[in-house]
Every structure is written in C-alpha cells, then in structure tokens.
Amino acid sequence: MARFGMVIDTLRCVGCMDCVIACKTENEVPEGFCRDWITTEVRGRFPTLTMEIRSERCNHCDRPPCVTCCPTGASHVEDFGSLVLIDHELCIGCKACLASCPYDARFVHPDGYADKCTFCVHRVRKGEAPACVAVCPTRCMHFGDLDDPQSEVSKLLASRRSHTLHPEAGTRPRIHFLT
C-alpha cells in the first residue's frame, strides 16, 4: 500500500496562489472557502530578513487526530495511498475534526459536511498529479509515495533539508517542506 505525500520546495515557491485557484476550479470548493492556502513567514528586522513561503493543506497525517476523534467513521484512512478522506454521507457536521486538526485544514462545507484537501484523489487514481502540483508554474511541488525509496519525493527528502509543520503535535504529517 502506497503512502502518498508531498514534498514542497520553499526555495522555488513564490506564493503566487496558483495552487489555491487551481484547487478551486478543479474541485468543488465553494466561494469563501479554500482547501489549500499560502503562508508567509517573515523573520528578522529590516533589511536582514528571511522569508519562507509555503503552500499548505491537509497533511494526510500518518496519525490523523481527525480520524480518531470522528464519532461516525466519516473521517477515515483510505486504503488507496493511505489518504485521509471524508465520507460525506456519514459526516454529521459535528466539527470535532475541525477542532482536532492542528493545521486548520478543515472547514464545514455549506452542504453540511466537513471538507478539506483530498490530494485530488480523483486525479491520482487516474495517474495524474493533484491539481495544485500540476499547475505550479515554479514546479515547487512534488507528489508521490513516501514509502517507495525510488520515488521522486523520497529522493528529494533524502537529498535536502526539510521540515514539517507542528511536528510536536505527533500527527506525523506527510507534507514536507524543503528549505
């Protein structure tokens, strides 16, 4: 079983939001919501500054608190790629998962269910990259199987310094940011 994840090169990323807009047109993301977003972290004092720009989304964690806390089993780990997905039919919109996610990745869809990034499972099943990865003009995003040492993502991780978000939360996130 594959364990899909992303490796995102923050050195290449310019924070243009193409990933955000492509996700919105590709997926059913209603006005006022987004499944991915840009975070800009500035450190230092002018003019001695550093800035990290990140394209963020659900981390499809190895230890997903949103799945553990879901009372109905709507939030689950899919066999396909170990993706963390939500079964809209089972979801009762109780928001427990929203509260449990350290990345603020979830929102309640106007139709009443919890929603978030699916890693574009409908594309990935067809062998395509998620929309955000495919659109990125800086080619800063990579998608693949973290368990396969020969995959592009594994090789990138082995060759560069990287970090994840909120490692202290113990969720084992699967999006890695190259620095």
Binding site: E31, G32, F33, C34, T39, V42, F107
Partner: peptide, 23 residues
C-alpha cells in the same frame, strides 16, 4: 513573524457583500 493564515483568507474572501454578489 507575520503569518497570513487561511482563516484570514476566508475572512476576507467571504466578506459581506461578496457572497451576495456571487449568488
């Protein structure tokens, strides 16, 4: 440290008037 969070994006994006205009 300035973080432009998704919450903020949502807050701006779903501002009053916008949703109405879109419907």
């Amino acid at each position: 440290m300035a973080i432009l969070s998704r919450r903020r994006f949502l807050q701006i994006g779903s501002g009053a008037g916008l949703a109405a205009a879109v419907s």
